[in-house]
Each structure stands twice: as C-alpha cells, then as structure tokens.
C-alpha cells in the first residue's frame, strides 16, 4: 500500500468525530481529526442534554463536548484546525486539500461534517441575522430579556428551545406550518403547560422586517391570509441541512437531501470511506447515535486497514 500521512483522517469534530477519534486513537491508529471551527459542532448550542446516558443529572452541550474531547485527548488523539476545500477519493490514497494549500493523505476517511441549521430563505432573514434573527437559542436568548419573540418550527429543537427562551422573553410565540407538533411528547407537554408560550398554527413566516434590528414579521396562514406580528427576535429552528459542499456525493452515495447513505457498518460506496453522525442519511439525529456511529465507523476503518495489509 502506498505511503500516506495517516491511516485515518476524521473530517469534523462533533460527537461522531470525537468518538471515532477516541476509538481509533485508543487502538493506536495513526489518526488525525480535522476541524474547521472548534470541536463540538451543533451540540455546543444545546442548552441542556438530559438524554445522554451516564449523566443522570443531565449536562450542557459544551460540558459534554469537553468531556468527549478530554477522553479522546487521554489517548493522544491528534487534532488540527483547518478548512478542507477539496477531497479526492477516487484512488486508494485519499487526498484532502486544505484552504492553506496543504495536502494531507490517508488510507481511510470518516466523514463527520455534520449538518447546520436550515434557513427559511425569506426576505430580511440574512440581513437581520445577528440583529434579532437567530438560529441558536442558548447563544442569543439572553439578549431578549422581557421582550416578545418568535420561534419558527415544530420539532424537538424548536419546542425545547421555545421553553428555554421563556427564561428570558416575556412571551414566546411558536409559529408552525402544521396543526400538530412533531416534537416528542414530553417536550410538547412542557411547552403546552408553559403560560408564556403561545402557538400560531398552520402558518408560515414570509418576511422579516426592521430597520437596524428585527421589528416585525409577516406571516401567511394556509388559507392565504396574511398578518403582521411585532417581535424583536425570531429564532428559526426548522431542522438541518447537510454540510456536504466539498463531498463527491454521487461517488459516495447520497439521499435526495444530500445526506450520505451508508451500510450498517457506516461504509459509503467508496472503499475505505465511512460516514457518521448528522451527515448520514437517517431519521434520528441525536448525540447518542452520532457517537455510536462514530465508534462503528472507526471499527470499520480498522477492518478495512487490516484487509489491505
């Protein structure tokens, strides 16, 4: 086999990447974890995690990531900050090209690039981002003390964060395009019991308006009626889209939304290339299965390496 810089490169340092890194480093692979921002990924913006086993009292997303990173570090997982702009996966040697021009080669690759918040794609959204338009309740919620704000969405994240935001906001109105929530029962019950949360059903936000900051939004219900709602903040929590821009999707295998399809061992269609975590095509995107998939992918990488010897 041709000489490469690494036996395994892990692309992305969220729960899936850190767990893959833990397994690979503990098994003494020559492994590098590449992260373009800071390790943690989307978990960092999660206020509180009550469903990751082993932490009976729950913990914050950033505390969980600190623990995962520390655990991987105990086995000397090497990490590097760098933005990959191109991947070449056609040959046995996988090549990654960084923005800096640096090239890294590896025998195997685990893609853990994750997902990012979906946007509404409406007027005013981009211009007012950071000025009242937010995708992160834990980051930005406290700026809206005693104000009236909106949450868009009906899934777990939207409903959990709507409840969290009532710690600060005097009123949180959830705008949902259907008449029932997709969020899990326990979250729904908590939200319905919270007097500061109101719901507007069967409606879409069609524009966000304001001079320097968000002042109001326009919504349209399913009967086509439009109205204006005054609000200083709008939290858009409507699911995620895959971070797949640099990936050769056709070669790897991907679903219609651009998430990567793998087999049960997290293997893509390209030999030696695995995917784990939120970038994978799947129905459940939780920290626990992201981490689990990272472990499975690392073991698949080891199997591949031993087969190549």
């Amino acid at each position: 086999m041709a000489k490469t810089d690494y036996q395994l490169i892990i692309l992305g340092g969220g729960p899936a990447g850190l767990t893959a890194g833990l397994y690979a480093a503990r098994d003494r692979l020559k492994v590098l974890l590449l992260e373009k921002g800071v390790v943690g990924g989307q978990v960092l913006v999660t206020d509180w995690i009550d469903n990751y086993p082993g932490f009976p009292d729950g913990l914050t997303g950033s505390d969980l990531i600190d623990k995962m990173a520390a655990q991987a570090k105990r086995f000397d997982l090497q990490t590097k900050n760098g933005n990959v702009v191109k991947v070449e996966l056609s040959e046995a040697t996988k090549k990654l090209i960084l923005e800096s021009g640096e090239e890294l080669t590896s025998q195997t690759l685990i893609i853990c690039t994750g997902a990012r918040p979906n946007k509404l794609g409406i007027t005013g959204e981009e211009d007012l981002t950071g000025k009242g338009v937010s995708y992160c309740a834990t980051c930005d919620g406290p700026f809206f003390r005693d104000q009236e704000i909106l949450v868009v969405g009906g899934g777990d994240t939207a409903i959990q964060e709507a409840d969290f935001l009532t710690k600060f906001a005097s009123k949180v109105t959830v705008i949902h395009r259907r008449e029932t929530l997709r969020a899990t029962k326990v979250l729904q019950e908590k939200a319905f019991a919270n007097e500061r949360i109101k719901f507007i059903w069967n409606s879409n936000v069609i524009a966000i308006e304001g001079e320097k900051e968000v002042e109001r939004v326009r919504i349209r219900n399913n009967d086509g009626e439009e109205k204006e709602i005054a609000a200083s903040g709008i939290f858009i929590l409507i699911g995620t889209i895959p971070n797949n821009e640099i990936l050769p999707l056709a070669q790897l295998g991907a679903d219609e939304q651009g998430f990567i399809v793998t087999d049960n061992e997290m293997r893509t269609k390209i030999p030696g290339v695995m995917a784990a975590g939120d970038i994978r095509s799947k129905n459940v995107r939780q920290v626990i299965n992201g981490a689990g998939e990272g472990a499975v992918a690392a073991i698949a990488a080891e199997h591949y390496l031993s087969e190549q010897e």
């Binding site: 800071v38 943690g40 978990v43 960092l44 999660t46 914050t60 950033s62 834990t138 980051c139 406290p142």
Partner: peptide, 14 residues
C-alpha cells in the same frame, strides 16, 4: 462572550 454560551466557551482557548 458570556458564561452561558457554549460556542463562546469553545473558542476561549483559541
């Protein structure tokens, strides 16, 4: 930054 912000904590070492 603020102490309650996870991403803020994450960039602290940087």
């Amino acid at each position: 930054w603020a102490p309650w912000c996870g991403p803020c904590k994450a960039i602290g070492p940087v």
